[in-house]
Structures are given as C-alpha cells and as structure tokens.
C-alpha cells in the first residue's frame, strides 16, 4: 500500500514537472490562455478528460503542442481548429452550437416546454371534466325532483 502511494506521488510529481517544462517559456497570460485551451480539448486516450488535466503521455504531448502554438502567437480559435482538423469535433469536450449539434442544445428546453404544456393541458381537461360532472349531477338532481313532482301530481 505504501509503495502504491509513493508510486502515485511520483507519477503526479513527474506530471507536474513535465507540465511545468512545457510551459516554462510562456508568460503568465500565455500560460492561462494555453490552460484554458487545454481545458476544452479532450484527451484521445482517456475517459472524457481534458488534455490540461490528464497525466497521459499523449495528453502531455498535445498540451506541449498547445504551449508551442500559443508561444508562436496563434489565436485560441486557430489552435482549436487545428485539433478539430485532426480529431474532428469529437476532440471538443463541449459540443459547438452549429449544425446537428444544435439539437443537443435545443431539444432539452423544447422537451421541457412540451412536457409543461402537456401537464397544463391535462390539468385543464381534468378540471373541465370535474366541473362538467358536477353540473351533470345537479342537472340529474333537478330532473329527479321534477319527475317526483309530476308523479305526485299524477297520483293526486
């Protein structure tokens, strides 16, 4: 158990050292820019992890490339587009709001709205039915009284 903890610590320290090495030539502002780009790019060999947080060699190398491109003066859009050009939009942890992806953003509120409308509609129908039944009961009571009155008159 102790050995596992030591090994884990070594892996984390190594990861931080490698990370620090890749970004050492950048200014604080550039580092923030690179980290924010790395936070939206998916590591291809991990389970839904951004390359900025993954200790996987592939992610570290992708992050180094991001640092390199930031240092070369490329914009966030240019860098993200480079990775999209290699891995498709799959590489983005947050889908774009273009094309087919638009469904992902639009459908949940539409579904919620439809569900609300359905609930309101059903509630109204139920209320209307209840009112109708009350009126029917009253009407049937009235007709019963009338029939009784007629019967009494006929009997007399």
């Amino acid at each position: 158990m102790k050995e596992v903890k030591i090994l884990m610590t070594m892996v984390v320290v190594l990861f931080l050292c490698v990370k620090a090495q890749g970004s050492s030539a950048l200014s604080a502002e550039q580092k923030i820019k690179a980290e924010s780009i790395g936070a939206v790019l998916r590591c291809p060999v991990c389970q839904g992890m951004p390359i900025a947080d993954s200790p996987a060699t592939m992610a570290v190398e992708m992050m180094d490339l991001v640092y390199e491109k930031v240092a070369a003066g490329q914009s966030e859009e240019e860098i993200i587009n480079y990775f999209i050009g290699r891995y498709g939009e799959w590489v983005l942890l947050r889908p774009t709001t273009k094309g087919f992806n638009l469904f992902v953003w639009i459908l949940p509120p539409i579904a919620l709205l439809l569900a609300c409308l359905l609930i309101v509609y059903r509630a109204r129908r139920a209320k209307e039915k209840e009112t109708g039944q009350e009126q029917d009961t009253l009407a049937s009571k009235d007709s019963d009284d009338t029939i009784e009155a007629i019967r009494r008159e006929v009997e007399i």
Binding site: P44, V45, T57, M58, E61, M62, D64, L65, R86, Y87, G88
Partner: peptide
Amino acid sequence: PESKTAIDYGVSG
C-alpha cells in the same frame, strides 16, 4: 519523439 506527426494524423492509440 514528441508525437507531433501522430497528432497531425489524429492518432489516438
């Protein structure tokens, strides 16, 4: 060595 070509080709493993 830095997997630049691998990344350029979109290699994931």
